[in-house]
């Protein structure tokens, strides 16, 4: 801004602080609730300051889950979520980078046909083909398996397009220099393309990890065995409409635990996260 008026700066600070309060308050309240006696929560007497039950509640949540409605221990759910998030992120990156490499660095029959085959899937989120996809997974015998939970979500046009975009910026001369230096296609991929793509891979990983961790509809469809619950989906099973049966203190602790890994990734890898976010939407 051109003018540097103290008042306008003060207003800016005030609005931003208000924004942060709005954004953070729900999480703060959840954190507070997770440290209070269940009775205080249910009676609405817990207030806005931390209680002293935090350690106990998180311990209970991690190792046994909710009691009134029996749930899977949260640690196990987090394990499931971690597997799902990692397999989806790594799997997507792996198949996308090689398919983009094929499309960009080779000329082969039906190349554009294949490219469009992948490209069109941008327009087909899981949500618009829920049951037929479910049926395919069921027919393949993949219900209640990690494979069923992850593989169908591994194909995506977004990552392929991102890598294609990046590969197109690699100068022709670099490919020629490598050819003269005696590098064939696989060597070029390993020695040149992969190292050059590291930032893109890392940025994409951050976004895809969050995507995988936060999946909800898919685990809801594919898993019936509560031992396979992911944490994001598992929380729903802990909440029942009649309040008295909901172990809110455990639910609150679980909610915090469900947010922790993806939020941690975003905050710690902020630069990569922002890059990934902007790149995947181009």
């Amino acid at each position: 801004m051109v003018e540097q008026r103290p008042l306008s700066k003060f207003v800016a600070h005030a609005i931003l602080v208000a924004g942060i309060v709005i954004v953070a308050f729900p999480v703060y309240l959840t954190l507070i609730a997770s440290t209070h006696e269940p009775a205080d929560i249910v009676n609405g007497t817990m207030g806005l300051l931390p209680g002293h039950m935090g350690v106990t509640h998180y311990f209970d949540a991690l190792f046994s889950g909710t009691k009134q409605i029996k749930s899977t221990p949260v640690l196990q759910m987090m394990g499931n979520s971690l597997v799902m998030a990692l397999v989806i992120a790594i799997g997507k990156i792996a198949i996308s980078i090689i398919s983009a490499y094929a499309v960009v660095f080779f000329r082969f029959p039906f190349r554009m046909f294949f490219f469009w085959t992948i490209f069109v899937t941008l327009m087909l989120p899981v949500e618009v083909r829920i049951y037929p996809t479910y049926k395919v997974v069921a027919d393949l015998g993949l219900l209640n398996t990690y494979a069923g939970l992850t593989i169908p979500l591994i194909a995506s046009a977004t990552a392929t397009l991102l890598f294609r975009q990046f590969f197109l910026t690699i100068p022709d001369e670099l490919v020629e220099a490598a050819q003269i230096d005696g590098a064939g296609p696989m060597k070029f991929f390993r020695d040149i393309v992969l190292p050059l793509s590291l930032t893109n891979i890392a940025a994409l990983f951050v976004i895809l990890f969050i995507y995988g961790w936060n999946q909800y509809l898919w685990p809801l469809l594919i898993t019936t065995d509560s031992g396979m619950d992911t944490i994001v989906y598992g929380i729903r099973r802990m909440i029942v409409t009649s309040d008295a049966n909901t172990d809110w203190h455990i639910v609150m602790a679980t909610t915090m635990l469900a947010m922790l890994p993806p939020v941690f990734v975003v905050v710690v890898m902020q630069r990569l996260f922002v890059k990934g976010l902007v790149d995947t939407e181009k």
């Binding site: 100068p171 001369e173 670099l174 020629e176 220099a177 490598a178 003269i180 005696g182």
Partner: peptide, 17 residues
Amino acid sequence: EPKDRDIAMVFQNYALY
């Protein structure tokens, strides 16, 4: 193939890795 011709090339934009 280029690699079998035993030539070396210097490019306009250098094409350094």
